[in-house]
Amino acid sequence: MPDTNQVSTEPLRKEGPITALGRAPLEAPTRALALLRKIEPYLYLLPALLLVGGLLLYSVAHTFAISFTDWDLITPPRFAGLKNYIDAIRDPTFTRSFSNTLIWTGGSLLLPVAGGLLLAVILERIPGQRVLKTLIYLPAILSTTVVAAIWSYVYTNNGVLNETLRWVGLEALARPWLVFAPTNTLAMIVASSWRALGPSMVLFLVGLQTIPPELIEAAKIDGAGERILFWRIKLPLLRPITAIVVIMSVIGSFMTFDLVWVMTQGGPGRSSETLAVTMYRQAFIMWRMGYAGAVAVILSTIVIAFSIFYLRATLKRSALW
């Protein structure tokens, strides 16, 4: 940005006489050079700013605007005020989608988060730690789409799970896993946990390593058993990490899309939709852009609220170290 204040402070005799075309041509190269030097640092910002601003931030603003209109992508959008938001709140499919998303949130706190903590505490003192850790982490490298493909096979009628149940004589338990609610949502949470457990376990292991061993030793000398050690010492000291894992898991649950879309497309009968799936269906299957925008904005409000908690937790953490 050329700065007029700075120009006026320069000694006048350095400038050529003012002409219709600006400063006299004699001095032009130095002036251009000075200008270039001043804007040069900003040029490094430009590619990143254009990419993020032009594609991402523009989209956020536009989606927000769309949510207040009626728009089918063909006829021009009409202003609709809060109608889309009111429609969404009154819509039983939206309510079900919202409660499915809450089930996802709860399930993901129970399986990958609590499960990851449990595994980390057990693994911490096991000799073969590294190999086991790597193997448990392995599914996390796979794409959610790949995980969805694998678990679709696990859950089909003659799939891995039902065949295994028949083989061990538990035929009564075999069922179509992805057809009835809420079993289909729960089954997909298990599939998703297969991928999510490893990372949360690794984070808890990192957290456990930062606990000073003297503290544990001292507690042991005082006669604390494993249980007391866990509840009274390890868990409280893990709190910063726990906060991060919990918030990340909540944010992740609210954005669940790929797995559900590939495995059931939110069905049958829209019974396994999550908020992100509802948004996609409204936008790209039903072409109700305004309604989809309202769902996206509601979803974002929740996610951003949790992100602020997250930022505060991480900031606190880096302030400690």
């Binding site: 931030l57 989209s59 956020v60 948004m279 996206a296």
Partner: peptide, 21 residues
């Protein structure tokens, strides 16, 4: 902050405008 704020939004905020654009 302007550039970093691109991490905070759910992807659902990007889909429709990007598709239209």
């Amino acid at each position: 902050l302007i550039i970093y704020s691109g991490t905070i939004f759910p992807f659902q905020m990007y889909l429709m405008p990007l598709f239209g654009l």
